[in-house]
Amino acid sequence: MRIAARVNGLAWSGEVEPRLLLSDFLRSEVGLTGTHVGCEHGVCGACTVQLDGEPVRACLMFAVQVDGREVTTVEGLAEAQPGEAITVEDLHPVQRALHEAHGLQCGFCTPGILMTAEAFLRDNPTPSREEIREAVSGHLCRCTGYHNIVEGVARAAELLAADGPAAHDDDDR
């Protein structure tokens, strides 16, 4: 089946088999391997991407379902072109905050958490720790014990607030 979608702002079109999971489509067809696959039954959250700005499990959707829609993956957060070197300064505030708070260890679950956190902070720019815990409770992380993920998201809220509303609007796409 032929589909045309936008992924991280770039147009993609081509043929896909109906059963191709969105997660596999992003990784193998679009070549964006930052979206990780941990369980393929919608529990671990590693494959979370944004569909028209809302976080969804990429393992529970088919590529054919994003025809005409906009998908954002972890590669779309920092403002760098593919292949271009990225430094800490280039990171999106949510990424930078997780870095500062040591909110990642092996980093495998991290892309999904970033996609959830970015959307969550758009809806709720000044969350409590408890709200943050609830917001990321759909993600399994076996390394961090979540402590520093929660601190990282809280830090991200501060960074986004400091960047001002204009910068935040940019991130809304």
Binding site: G42, P55, V56, M61, S137
Partner: peptide, 9 residues
């Protein structure tokens, strides 16, 4: 019901 990412869909 489940988690925000599930409730999105």
């Amino acid at each position: 019901i489940a988690h925000p990412q599930i409730r999105s869909r």
